[in-house]
Design a protein around this nucleic acid. Structure first.
Length: 1039
RNA sequence: GCUGGUGUGGUGGAAUGGUAGACACGAAGGACUCAAAAUCCUUUGGAGGCAACUCUGUAACGGUUCAAGUCCGUUCACCAGCACCA
């Protein structure tokens, strides 16, 4: 009677004692195979039946390859960093280190029950400092190569998890782990420049053997598209309304002014400087509404002042005038609180240089600035809010901030007051340090669009900018300003999710127009939220006739729709390009635009750089110290070798900090002990609280560190603070397959010879959920390591397959909360590991999702019982002998071929059926020891414990797992008699058994003698043709 | 919407263009048993027939072929991925 408990316990014990050994050999001459399963995250929940499905499947392969004489590496380890452990640790108030240790122990105990032939001597653990030492080391190489950098961008923030997440970790606005809502916020993070590898990650998919669906998903995610970037110029852009304050802005009057003040007021230079500064910096008390006597005094003063100044002949700022001339579509007025006496000659000069003001208003014209501005705006027909006002004085800014648009008050730092007072009052971008900075106030406005359909260029009706597009504010006309701002606000308040789900297109006209690069026509510019800022250029050329979204938009807002491509893909309405095919047109248009310098070919990717920091505790610390600018200047010696070409900096408390690397000898940088693992807010992770760890002395030549609590040994040590973010848990898994090759190396991440032996991984099995995450990331790391000469292959995995998920009964996902999980340990206890293994292989196609069904498991357990009974019965000699050895040979070799091929092709379910079929055929027979041996050998990879037991019952002393895999022998399929099917007009009508030696003609004769055939074909003349084919089919075709 | 895939009994699923439903589960009947479990035997897509057997049948419709679950076209349904990606 088959007792799975005693058998399995017995063999687990014997194997542990060394009856078999699955250690892979790093220096064996044998052909080798590297089979890899994704190493598990050791969660508190323990092993899942889904883990077992893939581990057993690949175990079967590994076992077969070993029996075929190959040197097989089938390793296992622990991907143990990550949020779930950390959250579990917080909830239970224990250290994540302890929690991880406990979980790993549970997993190991459970795995030990399953008869898996892992090479435990190479077990790795990403949270072991001796492992993450090399994770940190690799990261330092990326830092040095300039691939790791800091950037402030919109990233996904998950408030529930209190950390940022990578784009790949957010699905439909929810976190991949846990499904918590995420939002886009602007934060400074470590990034990895995976986009630099986008092209190779896409192209090299051609040379690997991945499941097609995996390649498709990777390609989708990388999102390569070939197209063109086209410039749409904004020559007919909206008028710029500019008023220049004269003194200190257009004219260099400072010295002369002081001179004049000294003369008029009879004071010395110091006093005069002070007086001038007061006048310029204080809130003004202007003459409007002043008393007559006061007005007279000011009149007299100003006129006198002007006379003196005119004599002194101040100069204009020629360089600035040149810059102003370069601006296009401007209306310019000049105002001054001085007098015509000195201004008029200078204006003449300015006009000669090409600036033609519509107004030059001085003190004589009007007392106050406000009045002057009102007059100018009135003449121009615009509002005060539309004008840009350039001044060098604080006084003007105070006076005008309520009249004009505060964002359009521009300070000129070369004036009387100097730069700093203006910076105190205005945002930096509104203060000009140099003449050419005016370009930034009115940037030259081209709108770049990306398109894959340059052939539709003549169908462009309008342009659409993303509402976040930075140029939008500067091109919008006053008339549409409010509408645009409202729209921008609306967009901002919508989550990305809402924005995606919005069905109806919305948008607003900007009032501005661009120029079509070929026709020169005016193209209206709109903004709409169907255009996304984070793809392409954030702007599109809209071709309503040939783009569905543009069409919808055009229909809604009554914009034209012009067909430029016929149904036969020939261009029409496209000027010189009419009659060309779209393909030709694409080439020619690209050429023309390139020639005119208005566009060029461009390859665009959807892939974004990888957000690589987390505000959490349970991850690898960055081997980085932040030091100040001065200290960075002192960096020298050895450590310079490890610096990137461009320093990485961040702003903290108004200071610039520089990221410098730890010396490789300092690795691993271990996680400090902290009092609390709870993440705090958006800023910093729990590591920030470990003050003793964070604050260090950094050696400027060696990159060594000491705790700040120790006395600074000498001047070579500078103050530094460690990075307090940690790496995401994808870091450790990005290179673990390399470590298996040489798991205990203390000198390098793995020995070169070992890598050469094992790489690339021959077969990598993992879940579909990691296809855009882990699989892409690790290919990226691998390619980088290849580039710096550390790995011998350009791709890590030669072949990648995926197992289907195991669902709960009823076809829904297993989850603790639904209470529908299946505990593999319970299954092993009730039915045995062998039954569980067989069932998981038998339940359905390996790569498809499938629902758990315990009664199916019972069936498999029944099968093993029958096998056991059959073979033990044969030993007691009670069965009738199977005498037809030809048939027995035939069946056995068909079985050998079937199983060998099906294991190779992941068709485990049909392996099991054929083992069952063979059993059903011979269960009442004694087939003899030779055939039993073969049968048990074929069964061994699937059910290692029972096979071992039956092997022993047969009297063998060595393990079945060390035996030789049966060889398929074609010659054993030769039979004396063969069955031939007779098909008449496609229908199978009879089966005849004939001597296998007969030739086709004789077989045809036999077929025509068949009774069945004769009842159907009474008239032999109706036979058109008879064919005997390779598959033992006789095909008769009749009229 | 786009891309890829799938559609076969009551269920999981087999099937290099050539006997559709292997294998297993479940169900029904029977044997063993005082009884139950376990085990063993028989039947099990549908319709007809005492039976030999016949017809029909792989989402729907059409096509190619001597022959189609398999190849082609259209439609429908489901699954997965991407998703206003310009």
């Amino acid at each position: 009677m088959y007792n799975h408990r005693t058998i399995e316990q017995k063999w687990i014990q014997r194997w542990a004692e060394g009856f078999v050994d699955y250690t892979a050999n790093n220096s064996s001459g044998k052909e080798s195979k590297y089979i890899l399963v994704e190493f598990p995250f050791p969660s508190g929940a323990g092993l899942h039946v889904g883990h077992i499905r893939s581990y057993v499947a690949q175990d079967i392969k590994a076992r077969m390859y070993r029996m075929q004489g190959q040197n097989v590496l089938y390793p296992i380890g622990w991907d143990a960093f990550g949020l779930p452990t950390e959250n579990y640790a917080i909830q239970n108030n224990i250290s994540p280190i302890i929690a991880t240790e406990n979980n790993i122990n549970t997993f190991k105990k459970q795995l030990a029950l399953l008869g898996l032939s892992f090479d435990w001597s190479r077990e790795i653990n990403t949270t072991d400092p001796q492992y993450y030492r090399w994770t940190q080391w690799i990261w330092l190489q990326m830092y040095k190569a300039g691939l790791a950098y800091q950037d402030t961008t919109k990233v996904w923030w998950c408030d529930e998890l209190k950390t940022v997440l990578a784009n790949e970790e957010v699905i439909d606005g929810k976190s991949e782990r846990g499904g918590h809502p995420c939002e886009r916020v602007s934060l400074t993070q470590w990034m990895l420049a995976i986009t630099k590898y986008a092209d190779r990650l896409d192209k090299d998919l051609d040379i690997v053997d991945y499941l097609p669906v995996i390649k498709t998903q990777q390609r989708n995610w990388i999102g390569r598209s070939e197209g063109s970037e086209i410039d749409f110029k904004l020559e007919h852009q909206t008028e710029k309304y500019i008023i220049f304050d004269f003194d200190g802005v257009l004219g260099d009057t400072e010295k002369e002014t002081i001179q004049a003040i000294m003369e008029i007021s009879q004071i010395d230079e110091t006093e005069a400087l002070k007086k001038n500064f007061n006048y310029l910096s204080k809130k003004p008390s202007h003459a409007r509404g002043a008393e007559d006597s006061e007005i007279k005094r000011i009149d007299a003063w100003t006129l006198k002042f002007g006379e003196i100044l005119a004599k002194l002949e101040p100069k204009i700022f020629n360089g600035f005038i040149d810059e102003i001339v370069k601006l296009q579509n401007t209306k310019i007025a000049i105002v001054s609180s001085g007098s015509h006496a000195y201004i008029t000659p200078m204006i003449e000069e300015i006009k000669k240089l090409g600036v033609n003001p519509t107004h030059v208003l001085t003190y004589e014209d009007h007392y106050s600035k406000e009045e002057k501005i009102e007059i100018i705006c009135n003449d121009w027909g615009v509002s005060e809010k539309d004008i840009y006002y350039f001044t060098d004085s604080q006084a003007d800014i105070y006076e005008l901030e309520n009249l004009c648009d505060k964002n359009k008050l521009i300070g000129c730092g070369w004036g009387h007051m100097g730069l700093q007072p203006l910076l105190d009052l205005l945002p930096e971008q509104q203060v000009l340090k140099r003449f050419e900075d005016i370009k930034n106030i009115f940037p030259k406005k081209n709108i770049k669009v990306f398109t894959t359909r340059i052939d539709t260029l003549f169908g462009v009706i309008f342009l659409v900018l993303a509402p976040e597009h930075p140029i939008l504010d500067t091109i919008v006309t006053s008339e549409y300003k409010e509408a645009i701002q409202t729209y921008q606000k609306q967009t901002k308040s919508k989550s990305d999710l809402d924005r995606q789900q919005e069905k109806e297109k919305t948008g607003v006209f900007t009032g501005a127009y661009a120029v079509h690069p070929l026709t020169g026509e005016q193209i209206p510019i709109w903004t709409a939220d169907y255009v996304l800022m984070n793809y392409g250029t954030g702007a599109v050329m809209a071709v309503p006739a040939h783009d569905e979204r543009d069409r919808e938009f055009a229909e809604k807002y009554n914009l034209a729709i012009i067909n430029v491509i016929t149904e036969d893909n020939i261009l029409e309405n496209s000027d010189l390009y009419n009659g060309l095919s779209t393909l030709e047109a694409k080439q020619k248009l690209t050429q023309e635009l390139e020639f005119k310098n208005l566009g060029h070919q461009k390859i665009q990717y959807k892939l974004r750089d990888w957000v690589f920091s987390r505000q959490r505790y349970w991850g690898e610390p960055f081997p980085i110290v932040w030091i100040n600018e001065q200290s960075y200047g002192q960096i020298s010696g050895e450590i310079v070798k490890f610096l990137p070409a461009n320093p990485i900096t961040r702003q903290k408390n108004n200071n610039t900090e520089y990221a410098v690397p730890l010396a490789p000898t300092e690795l691993p940088l271990e996680l400090p002990e902290v009092e609390s693992y709870i993440p705090e807010g958006q800023g910093e992770g729990p590591l920030a609280l470990a003050k003793d760890w964070v604050q260090v002395w950094y050696h400027i030549e060696t990159g060594k560190t000491l705790p700040r609590s120790e006395t600074k040994p000498d001047d070579k040590w500078v103050e530094g603070i460690r990075e307090t973010d940690t790496m995401p848990n994808w870091a450790g898994s990005s290179w673990y397959y390399l470590r298996y090759a040489d798991a205990h190396n203390t000198q390098e991440l793995a020995n070169q010879a070992a890598l050469e032996q094992w790489l690339p991984v021959d077969l990598y099995n993992g879940g579909m959920e990691h296809v855009t995450l882990h699989l892409l990331y690790s290919r990226f790391w691998h390619k980088f390591l290849y580039d710096i000469g550390l790995v011998p292959t350009i791709e890590p995995y030669q072949k990648r397959i995926a197992h289907g998920m195991i669902l709960a009964e009823g076809g829904i996902k297993m989850s603790k909360s639904k209470g529908n999980t299946v505990d593999p340990v319970e299954m092993v206890e009730s039915f045995g590991a062998d039954s569980l293994r067989i069932y998981e292989m038998f339940m359905g196609p390996y790569d498809e999702a499938i629902a758990w069904d315990t009664s199916g498991l019972i069936g498999c357990s029944r099968f093993l019982k029958r096998v056991y009974q059959w073979i033990t019965d044969m030993q007691t000699q009670t069965l009738e002998k199977a005498v037809d050895t030809i048939k027995l040979d035939y069946d056995t070799h068909i079985l050998i071929r079937k199983i060998t091929e099906d294991i190779e092709n992941q068709k485990y379910n049909t392996c099991i059926s054929s083992l069952m079929e063979y059993l059903n055929t011979y269960i009442n027979k004694d087939i003899g020891k030779e055939y039993i041996t073969t049968y048990i050998t074929l069964l061994a990879p699937f059910a290692p414990h029972i096979a071992e037991e039956l092997w022993e019952i047969l009297g063998k002393t060595e393990s079945v797992h060390k035996s030789i895999w049966p060889q398929f022998d074609e010659s054993k399929l030769i039979q004396t008699e063969a069955d031939y099917q007779i098909h008449i007009n496609g229908k199978m009508r009879d089966i005849i058994t004939v001597n296998a030696q007969l030739d086709n003609e004789a077989i045809q004769q036999k077929a025509l003698e068949s009774d069945k055939v004769n009842t159907i074909i009474t008239d032999k003349t109706r036979i058109k043709k008879i064919i005997v084919n390779q598959d033992k089919k006789i095909v008769i075709i009749i009229y």
